[in-house]
Amino acid sequence: MPGRAELATILPRRVLLAVGGSLFAFGARSQTPEARAEIDKVLAGRTPVPGGITLDLPSIAENGLVVPVTIDVASPMSEADHVTSIYLFADGNPNPLVAKFGFTAASGRASASTRIRLAQTQNVVVLAETSTGALRSVSAEVKVTIGGCGG
């Protein structure tokens, strides 16, 4: 069991970590450590620019097993400047990385739709990377009435 002095040195560090973490928080609801780690892996120290992405999601999902999601990133989709990857995260799921979509200039449009599982009310986070090295982000909260994992 740590002594009183040791506790005192541990506590402020925890507080600092919490503050540092909140700088990159994409929404009001807190992310799981797993989700933070997965998102940080893609960010690789970079700070994404918010916006430029349309994220179409229901704000309330009655059935967390099937939640439709459409992502559309504004991009010229030329050989020189196109979206290469879109990452889709559900930051309160046991498996926070939901999907990674890959595009080429031949895609013509950096847009994709799919259906996802959401275990609970949480934020859906999207990161989009372009061939010019730009990184954009958007997030939206989905309130889930019946969770869609396990059972």
Binding site: P94, N95, P96, A99, G102, F103, T104, T114, R115, I116
Partner: peptide, 14 residues
């Protein structure tokens, strides 16, 4: 020529 790809993880619906 590749036009689109997707890596799916367990949070993708049935």
């Amino acid at each position: 020529k590749p036009v689109f790809s997707a890596d799916w993880h367990p949070s993708i619906s049935a």
